[in-house]
Every structure is written in structure tokens, then in C-alpha cells.
Computed example of a mutant assay.
Amino acid sequence: MPADRRPTREELLASADRTLPLVVAPGLRVLFCGINPGLYSAWSGHHFARPGNRFWPALHRSGFTPRQLHPSEQEELLSLGLGVTNVVERASATAAELSPAELRAGGERLRAEVAEHRPAWLAVLGVTAYRTAFDRPRATYGEQDVRLGSTRVWVLPNPSGLNAHFTPARLAEAFAELRRAVEGRGADPA
């Protein structure tokens, strides 16, 4: 896929149900977990690739990465102790296409993935998906009161450009709160 071209409608539609390779290794500091790949990401072969997705800018603005990475550079996350996976592996046009049963099955698969790779933190990007996948209907953003083995769990806002409730600045601050927790620091002084 050439980096300077946009997919056609037909190419996007043909990307439905594709999966993306995991960006994961044993012992990561944080394993970021999207809901599922969008069609643009599936077409490109890279996580959070759709223009307007705010994952990569938030990751940088929060201090997790020394510069803003392009989605095609996703493998560089591993050298920073970071990784990317999804609750549901198959691509769809919107997360609304996923059934509760599919999200719950994804939660079970994710538990196994976390048990295998044992990241220090699992950061799920989307509170509604987290609530369904992990049967935690009252979950809110931030650190959760459950662990997956020794892995601590944090819920972040969905970085999709469609999530208008979180401005880029608020999203970056939510990511920075997680970074401070990962580094063992509380809130930055005012």
C-alpha cells in the first residue's frame, strides 16, 4: 500500500473481516488494546492508521514516545516497551458492528494473550467495549480494580476522531495519567 494514496471504496469494503498482526512481545510496560481494526487500518496493515485517529498524537503528546510515530512505524513501539492489540481481531467499518458476544469472546482471547505475554499494564481504549468484554458494567476511565494475573488494567478513551467527547488535549492528558502510573508517579504538580 503506497503511503501517499487513499484506498478506494472497493478496497475499504474488501478489508472487512481482515485482521492485523499484533505488535506484542513478552514483558511490555503497556499493551494498548483497541476495540477492533477499522477498514482503513485493515487496508493499510497498520493499527490506528485512519487519518483523524488520535492514538499516535496522544501517545507522543503524553510522553510515551519521543516523537509522533506514523502507523507504519508501529513496530518501533516494542523498543519502547509498548505494544498494540485489539479486543476483537476482525476489521469492521465501525465498532458498533460488533456484537456483545463477539466482545466477550474477544475479552477471553485477550485474557489469554495477556497471560502469555505478561505486560505490566493493559490499556483498553474504549470504556464501553471494556465494560462488555470484561463484564464490568460500571467501569469508568482510569485504573481498574481488577488484575489479569499480575497485569494491571487501565481504561482510556477511544482515540477515534469520532469520539468528540475528548479533545486532542484531553485525550493526551488521559494517556499522560497512565504514563505517570506506569512510571510510578502520581499526578504532575500544578
Rank of each mutant, 00 (worst) to 15 (best):
R185I: 00
L39M: 12
A93F: 04
T19R: 06
H117R: 04
P57C: 13
V87M: 06
F134T: 07
P168H: 10
G83N: 10
N36R: 03
F166K: 00
A58I: 01
L77R: 09
G142N: 10
D145I: 03
F32S: 04
A49R: 01
L31E: 12
R170M: 03
S99L: 14
L110P: 06
P189W: 03
L69Y: 13
A49G: 02
D188Y: 07
F175L: 03
A25C: 06
G34S: 00
C33A: 15
R152Q: 14
L22Y: 13
A101Q: 14
W43V: 00
W56C: 02
H70I: 07
A172R: 05
G184D: 12
H165A: 14
T151C: 06
R152V: 01
L22M: 13
G38P: 00
L103V: 07
L125D: 05
G184V: 04
G52A: 09
G106L: 14
A187I: 14
W43H: 08
L20M: 04
V124I: 12
A42C: 08
D188A: 15
R138C: 11
A129C: 01
N53E: 15
S62Y: 11
T132A: 10
A93V: 04
D4S: 11
V153L: 09
S15V: 13
S72N: 04
R111Y: 06
E75G: 05
W43Y: 08
V127L: 05
T65K: 01
P119N: 01
E108V: 15
Y141F: 15
Y141D: 01
C33Y: 11
R147F: 07
T65I: 01
P7C: 12
F55C: 05
C33V: 15
P157T: 02
A93W: 00
V153K: 09
W121N: 04
A169S: 06
P21Y: 07
T140P: 09
S62G: 13
V127A: 08
S41I: 02
C33I: 12
W43E: 00
L69G: 11
